[in-house]
Design a protein around this nucleic acid. Structure first.
Lengths: 137, 137
DNA sequence: ATACATTTGCATCATTGTTGCATTTGAAAT
DNA sequence: ATTTCAAATGCAACAATGATGCAAATGTAT
């Protein structure tokens, strides 16, 4: 799926900023921060534009945001695009990266009476496979 | 358990700021933000002092932090004090409150090979029992 | 090529997190 | 009770993220 197709499907204007963000996020192996996305982008965009683009893409469920410990914000392609389920996220304390665990679905939680859930976020913190290997060398 | 006892157990100096924060959090029915805690406190403390007090109390697992959508930060008494398990948290979209679901333990997630987990955060968003009742009136 | 709604860039501000450093305070020793 | 010193506080300063108003630029339908 190309960035422009995604924008068309959602009836969003095909601006270079939006297109660029989607392309970067599609090809990324991990969730990326605002600055990491900016570095991988050709154009030079204002922070506000970035912020508003992220917001728009989030609202259309093209990307989603993962926040670690308040302040570390990362973006990744959303399930709605990849046609997968809600998944858990993993934050590696060693390399500071966030990965979508696409094969780790969010579990159902039994809520107390009267509670109604809309969405569940699961963030697992620890050491990723990459960093664990390095540690055992 | 009194605030001073808790500080003594952890070998922390009994400063009025720390004591006050613990007392507020112990009696709170929900997780509270920095400002909500400040309002319930007698003394007037600098933001940095607050920040460092929270950090110290967190490090000693006396309180813990719940972050909603990056920016909404709430504090609550930690499991280690109440002798309970790691639990899920609930954010109510209606009344904007965060509650510890002490009876909803965090579930175990099966991670991909090589991944090692240390901690899992679960935040469930939706409507709380209180707000659901009001809606049905 | 034109027109207009949308998006962008810039300015500005709020909230949370963080650090350095001088001053104050808690608590141990006398 | 007084002294002493490590630890905590208050203040200043700064970083990252979120947010809004408004004029200028841009995408897209005509």
């Amino acid at each position: 799926m190309k960035a422009i197709e995604i924008l068309n499907i959602h009836n969003l204007k095909r601006t270079s900023c939006r297109e660029g963000i989607i392309e970067v996020v599609i090809t990324a192996k991990q969730a990326l921060s605002e600055n990491e996305i900016r570095e991988r982008l050709a154009g030079n965009y204002d922070r506000t534009t970035f912020y508003r683009s992220f917001k728009t893409l989030e609202e259309h469920k093209i990307i989603h945001k993962i926040v670690v410990d308040n302040q570390l914000v990362k973006y990744a392609l959303d399930n709605a695009v990849t046609h997968k389920n809600e998944h858990a996220h993993f934050y590696c304390n060693e390399c500071n990266t966030v990965k979508c665990l696409e094969n780790v679905p969010v579990q159902q939680y039994q809520l107390p009476d009267g509670y109604f859930d809309v969405e569940t976020e699961v963030l697992i913190k620890g050491t990723c496979a990459n960093c664990k290997n390095q540690a055992s060398n």
